[in-house]
Amino acid sequence: MVMRRRTSDATWLDAPDPVLALAQREMAFYEQTRNSARRWYRLTELGALATSSSTVVAAGLSAPAWLTALIAGGALFFTGFRQVFGHGSRYILTAQSHEVLRRAVNRYQLLPAAERDERARQELLAAVERVGDDELRQWVEQRRQTASGLGQPPGGPALS
């Protein structure tokens, strides 16, 4: 579930306060990813709900077998899509990451400019790194669970 960053933008290095710029860039990334995951999560949940309930209705109304099978196939598709892409868990992780970074940035920005010293910058940088470490750890845990659920031994092929 590691979120991919499509660019290797390092413009934050040239900012007057590079650590703050980095934290804000990471926060913006998590906000965008969170919003996308939330939309996909809602779409897949509504799709699964609609197709599952429609299957029951179609069968109850003695709809043609091909139509009932088509709707049931849609339900199966949404269930698989949900499991493969994990938008629900991605939504939760990115919302959590965004909130942690938002709070760290707020704490930093609430300091008077004169107190934004090396220690304060190190604390903000540590928060950014903690979020990245937590994301990676949770992704590895999910991949291990997925691999064990598929009957693959630990250390088997990498799942991406």
Score class of each variant (00 low, 15 high):
E118D: 14
L43N: 10
T55D: 08
Y108H: 07
A58H: 02
P153F: 08
D117R: 04
G47M: 04
R116I: 04
S54E: 06
A126M: 09
E118I: 05
S97G: 08
T51A: 15
W12A: 01
T94M: 09
D17Y: 09
E99P: 02
A104T: 03
A65V: 14
F85H: 15
F85D: 11
L124G: 00
R143W: 03
F29I: 04
E129C: 05
G149S: 06
L101Q: 02
A37E: 10
P153L: 14
R107V: 09
A10D: 13
L150Y: 12
G88C: 00
R38I: 10
G88K: 07
R143H: 04
Q96E: 15
A59K: 09
W139V: 04
I71L: 08
A15P: 08
L136M: 10
F77R: 01
L110K: 13
L125C: 04
P154C: 10
P18H: 07
Q138F: 05
R82H: 14
G60I: 06
R6I: 09
T79P: 01
R119T: 14
F81M: 14
W40P: 00
V57G: 03
Q32H: 11
Y108N: 03
D9T: 06
E45S: 11
G149M: 02
W40R: 09
G80P: 06
R5V: 12
S54Y: 10
V140R: 15
A63G: 03
Y91L: 08
T68N: 01
A23H: 01
A158W: 02
R82D: 14
Y91V: 00
A114F: 07
V2H: 03
A127K: 00
